[in-house]
């Protein structure tokens, strides 16, 4: 099982609903966020091109955060989801420094926190909160090993890219072009 997410940059309107849904669902402390929206503007007026991406932890298959964690608090859970065990985390900040996507932050409680792909919802067969709430239905979630999952289907039919693949992290957050 390899969980992955695809975000359709052509459908995303940058409303930030995914951010609020995540904060609500996961009780993210005020002033923090586990996902965010990036707007890329290219060109010169009037020839402007825009790309909007909802970003979060890439749940890399070769995650530098898991590699550099001195206690094993950062680990791969079922389906390749990268998680942090709170009571193993010493808050050294090595994983925060190691993440090229800056997807981790220091929780006010001391431990490190990040996107979990809403593993508690996945276990119940639900989609992550950001995917479920998206008003334009621009996000697809599922198992890459299942050829009929929403994410596998959409990746078969569309061109896609990942963020800084040259960092060698093998990310599992795809952006449909």
């Amino acid at each position: 099982m390899r969980y992955a997410m695809a975000v359709d940059t052509k459908k995303c309107v940058g409303c930030s609903d995914c951010v609020v849904a995540c904060q609500t669902e996961n009780n993210v402390p005020i002033g923090y966020c586990r996902d965010w929206v990036v707007e890329l503007t290219n060109g010169t007026y009037p020839q402007l091109e825009i790309e909007i991406r909802s970003e979060r932890c890439n749940h890399c298959s070769n995650a530098p955060c898991v590699r550099c964690c001195p206690t094993g608090a950062s680990h791969y859970a079922d389906g390749g989801i990268v998680l942090v065990t709170e009571n193993k985390c010493i808050g050294c900040g090595a994983c925060i420094n190691s993440c090229p996507y800056d997807a981790r932050y220091s929780h006010p409680g001391g431990h490190v926190d990040k996107c979990t792909f809403c593993i508690h919802r996945i276990k119940k067969g639900l989609d992550p909160a950001c995917v479920a709430t998206c008003p334009t239905k621009c996000m697809y979630f599922g198992d890459l090993d299942d050829p009929n999952s929403p994410v596998s289907t959409v990746l078969k039919n569309r061109k896609f890219t990942t963020l800084i693949p040259e960092a060698g992290t093998d990310p599992k957050l795809y952006f449909l072009m």
């Binding site: 002033g31 966020c33 996902d35 929206v37 707007e39 503007t41 420094n97 981790r104 932050y105």
Partner: peptide
């Protein structure tokens, strides 16, 4: 012009606007 900005207002302490965890 190429401009890439976070529009949802990410402001995680020690991470934004630039990493400063150590």
């Amino acid at each position: 012009m190429r401009e890439e900005i976070i529009v949802s207002g990410r402001a995680n302490p020690f991470i934004d606007p630039q990493l400063n965890i150590w």
